[in-house]
Nucleic acid binder design. Structure first.
Lengths: 238, 238
DNA sequence: ACATAATATGTACTTACGACACATTAATTT
DNA sequence: AAATTAATGTGTCGTAAGTACATATTATGT
């Protein structure tokens, strides 16, 4: 390296390493949605901060210097749920000065949709719990705002992209699918119109199987067509 | 300073910047769109980094410890264009490890729409220039990706929300408005269908004035209804 | 066999979208 | 004054999608 190159590099490093600018930390927070008992749920953890004792917060962590933002959120997700191949989408970055009581922390929010039946194991030991989204009144930090923002994004997405399916098991009936949509949108839908709309999207594969173990007429089972699975992961290539 | 000293200093700075979580810097980058000569333009500055000599980059700056993210982007905008009350929307945060050659810098991208005729003064002294979006092949850093992402967002927005109007002066004809839409979408639109669609939105106020100084039949002038002005600023309350 | 509790499906109405053509107007030229 | 120019302003028809709404069908359990 020539002296000139070194000088340039040094100047550049000095510019960004000016002490003040490194007093900002960056984190990711994951809004992990699940679905159970006809309710949309979100995975929360008891806050470990004094200021927020008794409150729950989203799952997050500081971003490590050697991992990119998306990797950090996948890591948080994997650490907490054990799941690897999941739908994950960046939503918004929250950077108010006073949003974290211990210092300046800017956080990037991701939302994720997982099949709640596939991770039952991991979460017992921690203070992790599923909470019905509709029951959540108050969260630590600005996490209620983050949750609302992600929920809005989710609601905007589900009719555009086949993402809601990530909340369900591989095989599902149209009734189950409709119930998922109703839970996400927090509204009742007309069955005939819902089916027409879904049929139009051409997302589903008819499995030629029926539901079992019901005390009434079983419905046909469907699966999301292979080409649409795990949408969103890696969508925003960097 | 000898080369040895420089090497030591560089090494020290590099070491520091990998020590802990506060060694990630955060910046904002603004994609400032304007409209002129029936073309969508974006405000760029000559990159000051050796690695990108000859290339242009977006307008950005490090976020100060005492300002929130949105303030930082408004500050960048005001510093560069002198404009204060502008449409500004957060789009995405880019956090690849190697996206900045001098160190770890995570950046949050905002896009902004301004009336190009209202800021002609400020930008001469710097290396600031308006570039036709369609002509841009390569930018410094990952700024081409950021530009593309913001352009996509802009395109998604304009039929939903009355944001394109921020590119025009207060009074405009439907032809001018259509040309703005055509520039943004990079496509031709049918005049009758476009007008129907806009009429349906009920965004416009008929000013009962006509264009002047044309060598042909003048069109009526319209303004965006007051209630829709400066949409987006502060939309995402924190 | 019957009752149950759900699935599966179609029609009529309305609204939005896309393609498309002609009359009108102000300014300019002859 | 008349004709030309170059644009504005507007309507229809066919198609696709959205919404409201009711009846026949089918496994199961009794």
């Amino acid at each position: 390296m020539t002296e000139k190159e070194l000088n340039l590099k040094t100047a550049a490093l000095e510019k960004i390493s000016h002490l003040d600018y490194f007093n900002i930390a960056i984190s990711v927070d994951c809004v992990i949605f699940g679905y159970e008992n006809k309710e949309l749920k979100v995975l929360l953890i008891k806050s470990d901060l004094e200021e927020f004792s008794g409150l729950y917060s989203l799952l997050g962590d500081l971003v490590r210097p050697d991992e990119d933002l998306e990797s950090a959120s996948y890591r948080v997700l994997a650490e907490r749920t054990g799941l690897e191949d999941v739908y994950l989408e960046q939503v918004h970055t929250f950077g108010s000065i006073a949003r974290h009581p211990s210092g300046r922390v800017i956080t990037t929010a991701y939302y994720s949709l997982i099949d709640i039946t596939h991770h039952k194991l991991q979460l017992n030991h921690n203070d992790l719990h599923w909470h019905a989204v509709n029951d959540i009144k108050k969260l630590a930090f600005d996490h209620k705002l983050i949750l609302n923002t992600c929920l809005k994004r989710l609601r905007d997405q589900i009719m555009e992209n086949p993402v809601a399916f990530n909340l369900l098991q591989d095989k599902f009936s149209l009734r189950e699918l409709q119930e998922v949509y109703e839970a996400i949108l927090d509204t009742k839908l007309d069955r005939r119109n819902f089916r027409k709309k879904i049929a139009l999207k051409d997302w589903l594969q008819d499995l030629n199987e029926m539901e079992t173990n019901l005390s009434h007429r079983p419905g046909k089972l469907y699966a999301l067509k292979q080409q649409f699975k795990i949408t969103g992961a890696g969508t925003m290539a960097e």
